[in-house]
Design a protein around this nucleic acid. Sequence first.
DNA 1: AGAATAAATGATCATTCGATAAATAGCAAC
DNA 2: GTTGCTATTTATCGAATGATCATTTATTCT
Lengths: 207, 207
Amino acid sequence: MQTHDKTRQRLNPDDRRRMIVEGAVSYFAEVGLGGSTRDLAHRIGITQPLLFKYFATKADLAEAVFESVYLDRLDPSWPTLLCDRAKPVRERLTAFYHAYSDAIFTYEWMRIFMFAGLAGERLNRRYLDHVRDMLLKPAQNEILWEANAAEGAGPDMEDMFNLHGGIVYLGIRRFIYQLPVPADTGPVIDRAIDRFLLHWGVGITRR
Amino acid sequence: MQTHDKTRQRLNPDDRRRMIVEGAVSYFAEVGLGGSTRDLAHRIGITQPLLFKYFATKADLAEAVFESVYLDRLDPSWPTLLCDRAKPVRERLTAFYHAYSDAIFTYEWMRIFMFAGLAGERLNRRYLDHVRDMLLKPAQNEILWEANAAEGAGPDMEDMFNLHGGIVYLGIRRFIYQLPVPADTGPVIDRAIDRFLLHWGVGITRR
DNA sequence: AGAATAAATGATCATTCGATAAATAGCAAC
DNA sequence: GTTGCTATTTATCGAATGATCATTTATTCT
């Protein structure tokens, strides 16, 4: 008995849709949104017209890719973590940036986020506004509180973005420029946070 | 008497070529290398086939764009500046990063560099290797020298990249994500350098 | 087992793309 | 002013693109 090596497989629409989005995330992360629907379909293992049964236009598919990548990227518990004064702010910042870099240091996220930024996607700005308001601002506030609050000395928002950028740049070097970075970025991040806090006398080990 | 509003103008090849590359830099910085040769030609004010009289293929044009953008971006005097021990390292680093950010914080450079990175361009990695070897390494060395060299305490290369990334991130926010950043990035950069050096006791004002 | 439903495919359309070739016209030399 | 050279344009090609539609076939229901 012989059968087709590649029999037509009929999935339920939800599964198929997931499969398409997943494949599109991977494909567009590599080649950008300029990639063709035919190449994409071939990589997924389906025919090109099937894409248009699930997404009316290529732009709709791209939007689904963005949503999929942005979805659940920011853990809602992070602001709480950052503001938990039971722990020293140094520990909180370190824990946060470890979790944050674990979340965003992926090939797909880094590259699609950058492609989206270059394309002028609105989601991008909304995401970074969220980072500023929900993460950097609380962090700034906590640092200020633990520093000499009386003197009003502490980082401004640009200082916060500088810390943030220095850390994010690790992911940019690795996934955008495809340059080698340490396998474990944890210590690099820790030292960046230490330097940052030291400037306002925060996190100095007293005993 | 009436004449053509747009008479065909015949330039000498060098000028025309310059005009094309200049237009291509501007155009591709906006839309990426996926932009069409017709749109580009229209923006330059020439016909599309003329592009192919000056560049055999679109890829050749792209290469000329890269060369044009990368050319003379790195001032060969910067390593010398960084190693001039007549001045304190803090002053040298500050002067360098002011000059460097002046050189690269442009719409065209930032975006084309990012597009090139995502496209896997070789020039990109070569450029960053150059930054590491000719700029960051000397800077690291100078910091080490001015710090307590005896203790062997100083930044490693990842620390240097962290400083670098925090500063470059200003340009990324502005030109890639198109978010507002301070009109004068000088003070932000200065503070980042101060924090960095403080960690190794460099740049503390003694009197 | 046979009919109904709809997931998936094959064939194809209209555009747009990079690229080519023939025709036109601006400019210098005489 | 005529001629020769070549920068530039007009017209067009074949391939690739996003998208459509009729047909086929896997699965479910009875």
